[in-house]
Design a protein around this nucleic acid. Structure first.
Lengths: 141, 141
DNA sequence: CGACAAAGTGAGAATGAGTCTCATTTACTA
DNA sequence: TAGTAAATGAGACTCATTCTCACTTTGTCG
């Protein structure tokens, strides 16, 4: 396990505690599962990985983590949403999805972030944004 | 019905014909419904609007139109996808979604398009992109 | 003009993701 | 240690989407 994962895990546990929530084994396992991934996973993938943890618990844990800003929901273009840990530093990335095989890769782009930051829309208070690029990966070409 | 809608409708019908597909009333009604909208609608909204047209037919028609590049699928953050006609001129927009009431508004931004156009990713052949901004609309603040 | 094959169709069953309920268990705190 | 609020797992449920299938329409070829 890399340092960053340890950081995110303990950061998440602290924030959970600060929010007045109790410690729990099943939720801890969901947090671990998210910590060990570089990019988005679906709720059902996590559920399948964690034997003995109920589906409802996985969804509940993800929801709580999302409310605390520890996890973000990302649309991968398919039928299910993906969820991934949010870097405490505020650093974030977007996604490239291969429309043939479904593979997802993270990417970052400074110019893109700036362009989005410069968008102002009358009456709308922007809170977050999501960019998904679609195409074909090397393997599928 | 505005000129642009007429154009898109007949353009769509021609492309359907070119693709070797047969003429049909129900699919024609789905095309009309899409033509009459400025922004995305869900498949079930279209289905509900068109009495006498089966759900399967609505989904099939949308799928065919999507394959022909006449319609694009957009993620509105909710549980269902939206579908909207693609302007034959290549002109396109993205979406701002109010996370409280679910309202969707289109927006365009030249700088954003350029930033996306400049992204090159080794091994990936980019085909399309999707940008969704989230926040709160005037009514919900 | 038929007649036939391919495309199209609607009803409803099936699937898949996500949500809800509820009886039971667990973690904190007084 | 008792009380209570949070947490849990099983499974029922909802909603969007896909699939199946028997039947109808379209277009073309003889």
């Amino acid at each position: 396990m890399a340092d960053q994962e340890v950081d995110w895990t303990s950061h998440a546990e602290s924030r959970i505690h600060e929010a007045g929530l109790k410690k729990s084994g099943p939720r801890g396992r969901v947090i671990e599962s998210l910590a060990g991934r570089d990019c988005a996973a679906t709720a059902l993938e996590i559920d399948a990985e964690l034997e003995g943890v109920g589906r409802a618990t996985v969804y509940r844990a993800i929801e709580q983590l999302e409310e605390l800003g520890l996890v973000q929901k990302v649309d991968l273009g398919g039928s299910a949403f993906g969820y991934e840990k949010v870097d405490p530093s505020g650093h974030h990335h977007h996604h490239i999805v291969c429309d043939d095989c479904g593979k997802v890769e993270p990417f970052e782009d400074e110019a893109l972030e700036e362009a989005i930051h410069d968008i102002h829309r009358k009456g709308f208070k922007l809170e977050k944004h999501e960019v998904t690029l679609h195409g074909q990966c090397q393997d599928c070409r």
